[in-house]
């Protein structure tokens, strides 16, 4: 699936994650800010990358502002943002 336009999903409220997806020239890239970056940064990036792979997205810049979201939340937010970005 091709990212065609910028799209977003989620909120910046506690236990949620705000995901912004933009078309990108150099493959998939993640720019993550998180209140638990030190503890879970790698894990969050992995969930985002895996979700992109599942959706067969190959040209996304994902900007993620995490406030302690669980993996399921992260996955759902990424899916929604991508769905909006390919319309």
């Amino acid at each position: 699936m091709r990212i065609k336009k910028p799209a977003k999903a989620g909120t910046m409220e506690s236990n949620d994650i705000y995901i912004m997806v933009y078309p990108n020239e150099n493959g998939n890239e993640i720019q993550l800010d998180s209140i638990v970056l030190k503890q879970f940064g790698k894990q969050i990036e992995k969930v985002i990358m895996d979700t992109l792979k599942e959706l067969e997205v190959e040209n996304a810049l994902v900007v993620a502002k995490d406030r302690g979201a669980l993996d399921y939340t992260i996955k759902a937010r990424v899916e929604t943002a991508v769905k909006r970005a390919i319309e």
Partner: peptide, 17 residues
């Protein structure tokens, strides 16, 4: 956080990323 989410959403929809 709700104020910031809302203002970001509005700006985003205006094309301000």
């Amino acid at each position: 956080s709700r104020l910031l989410t809302k203002i970001q959403n509005i700006l985003f929809d205006r094309g301000i990323y």
